[in-house]
Computed example of a mutant assay.
Amino acid sequence: MSVVADAPNRAPEGGLQPAPPVAGRPSDIVAIATCTSEWNPAVQVGAALAARWQSLLTGCYVDESLRVLRGPESEPSVAGLLLDTPVRDFEEGSAFRAFAKSLGVPHASWVVAHTGLARVLRELGAWHSLAVLERDLVDGEALGELLGEALLACRLPSLVLPPAWDRGDQFQRVLVAWDGSTEATRAIHAALPFLAGARRVVLLDGGRVHGPEGTCYLPHFQPFVYMARHGIEADPMCVGIPARTAGAALLKKAEQVGADLIVMGAFAHSRLRERVIGGATRYILEHAQIPVFLQH
C-alpha cells in the first residue's frame, strides 16, 4: 500500500486549528475509492461523515483487477505494483485532500493499495473506526465473502452503500435489526452516532437467539433500554421471522417504515468457516436498495 502526501488540511494562516473529533463518534473513517475522475458515492459519503464528526479520513483506491484477490493470491503482484505510478498517486492524493478540505474534513490521507480488498480492509481496520464502501465494487457474491473475511478478522464496522447511491449521508429513519446475538449488540453500539442523528429509530426485535447452556447467568443486553440511556427513543416492533426468510422479511420491514439505513450484525454460518457471511446478511447485501451498517 502506498501512502501519498499525508498532510493535514490546515486552517488558513492565523485561523483556528481543526477541531478535535466529536466525542463518541468514529475518529478515523476509511472510504474505498473506485474512481478518481469524479468521486464515487463511498468517498462522498465518507467525506461528509468525516466533516460532520470531525473525523480523520482516509481515501483508499483499490484497482478493479485486484479487488477480489484473497488469501495467498492477495500478495502484492508485479502487475499490481505497476498499476499506479507515484506521479499519478500524488495527483490523485492532492485532488482527494482538496475535495475533503472543501467539505471541512480536518485531515485527509490518500493511499493506493496493490492487493485484494479483503486484505486492505483487514489492514486498515486495525486503526480505523468505520469503512464506507459500495456494494457493486465487486460481484455481489464476492462482496459477501470479502466483507466476511474482513469483518471477522478485524471487526471493522462497515457502511455498505447500494449501487449509484445519491441520497447523501443524512440517515433520518433507521431500522435496527435485533436478534439477541453478540453481533447485533456490537452493531447497535457501533452505530450510535447514526442512531443519535436520526429522526426515527425502529427496533425490529426478532427475539433472543438460543445461547449455550449457562448463558442465563450472564448479564443480558437490553437494546431498547441501552439506546434510551444514550438519548435515543426507539419504536419497538416485535416480529417472528423464520431464519430461511429473514433477509427478505427484514428488507420488507425496512420498506414499510420508510427506512433509509439498516443496522444489523454480520453473522457467519460456522466458526470454522470464518470467511462465510450468513444467509440473511448475504441476501440483504445483494438486494438492499438502502445503505446497510454491518458489524461483527
Rank of each mutant, 00 (worst) to 15 (best):
K101M: 08
S102G: 05
S102E: 01
L103Y: 11
V105F: 08
V105E: 06
S109M: 06
S109R: 14
W110G: 09
A113Y: 11
A113G: 07
A118H: 04
R119M: 06
R122Y: 04
E123K: 07
G125Q: 13
A131C: 12
A131P: 00
R135N: 08
L137T: 05
L137G: 01
E141V: 14
G144D: 06
E145D: 03
G148V: 00
E149W: 03
E149Q: 10
L151D: 02
A153K: 13
A153E: 07
R155S: 13
R155P: 11
R155K: 08
S158W: 14
S158R: 14
S158Y: 14
S158C: 13
L159G: 11
L161G: 13
P163I: 00
P163G: 10
A164Q: 14
A164N: 11
W165L: 13
D166L: 04
R167L: 05
G168E: 05
G168Y: 01
D169R: 05
F171R: 12
F171I: 15
R173G: 00
L175R: 02
W178H: 02
D179N: 15
S181Y: 00
T182V: 05
T182F: 05
T182Y: 09
E183P: 07
T185C: 07
A187V: 11
A187F: 05
I188K: 00
H189V: 15
H189F: 02
A190K: 15
A191D: 00
A191E: 05
A191C: 05
A191T: 15
L192P: 09
F194Q: 07
A196P: 06
A196L: 06
A198C: 06
R199A: 04
R200G: 03
R200T: 13
V201Y: 03
V201T: 14
V202H: 02
L203D: 05
L203M: 03
L203G: 01
D205H: 11
D205N: 13
G206E: 03
G206T: 00
G207Q: 04
V209Q: 10
G214D: 04
T215R: 04
C216N: 07
Y217P: 00
L218N: 08
P219F: 08
H220G: 10
H220F: 02
F221Y: 11
Q222H: 11
P223A: 08
P223I: 01
V225D: 01
Y226G: 01
Y226R: 10
M227R: 06
M227A: 01
A228L: 08
R229C: 10
H230K: 09
G231Q: 08
I232V: 15
E233Y: 06
